[in-house]
Each structure stands twice: as structure tokens, then as C-alpha cells.
Amino acid sequence: MSTTPESSNPSSSSNGPSGQDGSGAGSEPVLLSLRGISKNFGPVQAIQGVNLDVPVGQVTALIGDNGAGKSVLIKTISGIWEPSGGHIYWKGDEIHVHTPRNATDLGIATVYQDLALCDNLDIVQNMYLGREETKFAMLDEIKMELATNQLLRDLSVSTVKSVRQLVASLSGGQRQAIAVARAVMRESQLVIMDEPTAALGVSQTAQVLQLIRTLSSRGMAVLVISHNLNDVFTVADRIAVMHLGALCSEGPASNYDTASAVELITTGHSSRVPSTLTPSS
């Protein structure tokens, strides 16, 4: 593992997040904690002072208007870039995620909004990109193809003709399914999805939502960004709202309804939602 935990001993994390209680994350242990995370691009402050806890075995939905900073936040967690300020804790230990590889090595799998697939490679090659199976240093294509077939069947992705077809030839929904399947295959502890249903039709959306529930019931933490409040209320255990680069509300999904969620998304506050924001440090 090439990450650099500052304290590998959990007991020394006294300056870390407040732990399982008092953080408002319910009864499940917290897997990932963000404290005061900010990111600026030159003079542009994209996100600032974000505190967020992502508990194990639950679906946390991150919602917010276009440009609120949701994608920037998850890219910070995924090692696309380093935060300009703040701390990230993984199971109580502070970590520094310098590269995407650091994140995947920890057990964070991310399905990006643009899916990050290689059009010139086939489905199997994309599924295993970065973690190919080998035999005597040679790629073990048969093993990878069999496992891909199996996984796509498990996930009921039945519309692709052949796993050896180029990703360029797939429809938007199929591409999304492949990107999600790839994150699932990595047996990660945290799966992050950026707008996974944005490009999908009704039945494929239902499939992806089902998939998200399956992941959390297997004990994985899921952090999902969505624009679609229907999807959010169907699938989320917890909801976090971003407004203009800041996290403005966070809590169990039962604290919210469509009206209050819309209010939070557009104005950043709502009188009808109890404030459950995690205090900084």
C-alpha cells in the first residue's frame, strides 16, 4: 500500500474525527471522515470547509446544484488532486491521497461522471485496467474474460453482445453499467459514484439503484451524487447537501423531504431541517 497514514495506530487518532458517536452518522462506524476540506483552483475557491462522515454499510447521497462543488469534493477524495486544506481520515487515521492509485489501494473505487473508460479498449480490458490478471507475467485473458462474463451476469447487465466489443461501440447506459461493474469488481470498501443515473433510461436507472442497495447491504459504504431527488429518496440512508462550495446540511434521509431538499439546494438553508452539521475539529 503506497498511502501514507500519519498514524497507523487507531488509538493515537485523538486529533481525528470525533468517532462513532456525536458525529451524527448514526450507529454505523464511520469509514471516511472529512474535516475542513477545501480546494481552490488558483483564485477560484471551489469548495471550502467541508466536514462529512461516510458510514459503513450505508448509502450517503450528496446533492447540490450544478457547480456546487460535488464533483470537486469526490475528486479530492479519489486522489485526482490534493486538497488545498483540511484533513481526510480513513477508519480514524489521517491519510493523504496523492494519486488515484493511493485511493484504490485503500479500497476507494470511484465511478466518475465522465466514466473514465478507454474507448479503444474492449469491455474486459477496461474492467481490469490497472489490475490485470497475469500468468508468468503474461496477461491471462481467459481468466479475465470469464470473470467479466460472470460479473455482468451477476449484475444482470445482459444487453452487451460480447465482452470483447470495444467500449466505443456501447450505448450510454451500457457504458455506465460497465463503469459501475468495474467499481464493484474491485471489492472496495467505499464506492463513490458521480451522477450514475444521469444518462440512463428508466429501467437501467432502476438497475443501478438496485445495484447501489446491493453494495451497501454487502457492507460497503456508498457515496452517490445525484441530481434526481426521486433516486436520492429511493436509495439514500443519509443525505448531505452542498451549496456554493460548502456543505450546508447533513443527516439521516428521514430528516428531509423533497421540499426541504429543494430549499437547501437552492438557498443553502431550510428552517424545517434540524441542523446536524458536524462541527469542525
Partner: peptide
């Protein structure tokens, strides 16, 4: 793997980077 990565980088450098 080296060959596979050369194709991947040529197809979508950022995707290859994000895949580790």
C-alpha cells in the same frame, strides 16, 4: 501489462491515470 497500458494511455490518458 506494459502493452495494455500503452494502448490505454493512447486511448484516454486520464482514464488510465485514474485506473492507477
Amino acid at each position: 501489462k506494459a502493452g495494455r497500458y500503452i494502448y490505454a494511455i493512447g486511448g484516454n490518458t486520464e482514464a488510465a491515470r485514474r485506473a492507477g
